[in-house]
C-alpha cells in the first residue's frame, strides 16, 4: 500500500466523524436559516408557506398581526416570573440536597426527576384535572400558566444547580474558613460566586423552557394567549411572517447572551 493512499485513508477515518458531526449541525440549523429567511418574506397568498419576495416590512411592522405582540408580552412576563421563582426554589432545593442530611434523600431525587420524565401532555392534563376539580375551570389564565411553568422548570433548575454544586471542591470552602471567613462570608465570597454560573444557566434554561412551552400551557391557559399559542392559532389560519421575525430576534438575543458570556469569560482570563 502506498504511503499516500494510506495517509488519505487515515485522514478520512480520523475526520469522518467530524465531517458527519458538521453535517448534523447543519441539519440542526437548516430550520433556523429558514426562519431567518422567512422573516424577510412578503407572502403572496395567505395559505401557502414559501418564500415569495423580499421585504423589510415584517421587521418594521412586527406588531401588525392582531395579538402577536400582546402574546409575546404575556410570554415574556410569564417567562421572567416563572424563571425567577423556579430558580430561587430550585437553587434552595439543590443546596439542601447536596449539602444537608435529611431523611428520604433518594425519594426526593426521584420526586424531582419525575416531572422531567413525564410527557408534557400528562403534566398538562393532570394540572387541568386539578384546576377543574378545585373549581378553577373559570379562572384559567395567566396565573395558572405561571404555576404550571414554575412546576416544570423547577426540576431542571434543581438538576442543573446540583450538578454544579456537587462538582465544587469542598476544600475551597474549607480554605476560606481557614482564612478567617465565617460561614456567612464563606458562602457569599466563595460558594455562591462559584455556583453562580450554574444558577445562571439554570435560569436561562428555565426561561427558554417557559417561553417555548405549548402543550402544558395550551391546556391551562383559558383565554390567555402566549406566543407559542399565537403561532399555533396562526398555523391553522395562515402564518404571518412576523412570527419569523420574533423567532429570529429570540435566536439572536440568546446567541448574543451565550457568546457574550463566553467572550467575557475569555477576556477576563486574558486581560487581567
Amino acid at each position: 500500500m502506498s504511503t499516500l493512499a494510506y495517509r488519505g485513508r487515515r485522514w478520512f477515518s480520523d475526520h469522518v466523524v467530524l465531517i458527519y458531526a458538521i453535517l448534523v449541525l447543519l441539519y440542526m440549523f437548516t430550520p433556523v436559516f429558514v426562519v431567518i429567511l422567512m422573516s424577510f418574506n412578503e407572502p403572496a397568498a395567505r395559505q401557502t408557506y414559501q418564500f415569495d419576495a423580499f421585504t423589510w416590512n415584517n421587521w418594521t411592522n412586527i406588531c401588525a398581526p392582531f395579538q402577536l405582540c400582546d402574546s409575546v408580552a404575556v410570554s415574556l412576563k410569564v417567562g421572567l416570573l416563572a424563571t425567577l421563582v423556579a430558580t430561587l426554589l430550585g437553587t434552595l432545593m439543590a443546596f439542601a440536597m447536596v449539602r444537608h442530611r435529611f431523611r428520604g434523600r433518594s425519594a426526593a431525587n426521584v420526586f424531582v426527576f419525575l416531572p422531567m420524565a413525564s410527557p408534557e401532555i400528562v403534566l398538562g392534563s393532570s394540572l387541568l384535572a386539578l384546576f377543574v376539580n378545585a373549581g378553577f375551570a373559570g379562572v384559567l389564565g395567566f396565573w395558572t400558566i405561571f404555576l404550571a411553568h414554575v412546576m416544570f422548570c423547577l426540576s431542571f433548575v434543581v438538576v442543573t444547580v446540583k450538578a454544579r454544586l456537587s462538582g465544587l471542591d469542598p476544600r475551597l470552602e474549607q480554605a476560606a474558613m481557614d482564612l478567617y471567613a465565617n460561614e456567612w462570608q464563606t458562602f457569599w465570597r466563595v460558594t455562591f460566586p462559584l455556583v453562580f454560573p450554574g444558577i445562571l444557566s439554570a435560569a436561562l434554561l428555565s426561561f427558554s423552557l417557559s417561553f417555548d412551552d405549548f402543550i402544558i400551557t395550551n391546556l391551562n391557559s383559558g383565554q390567555t394567549v402566549t406566543f407559542p399559542m399565537f403561532v399555533w392559532g396562526a398555523a391553522q389560519r395562515g402564518i404571518p411572517p412576523q412570527i419569523n421575525v420574533i423567532g429570529t430576534i429570540m435566536f439572536l438575543v440568546a446567541l448574543a447572551l451565550v457568546l457574550g458570556g463566553e467572550l467575557g469569560r475569555r477576556r477576563r482570563q486574558i486581560v487581567r
Partner: peptide, 9 residues
C-alpha cells in the same frame, strides 16, 4: 491545602 484549593474566581 493539598492541590492548593486556590479560589478559581
Amino acid at each position: 491545602f493539598q492541590s492548593y484549593a486556590l479560589f478559581p474566581h
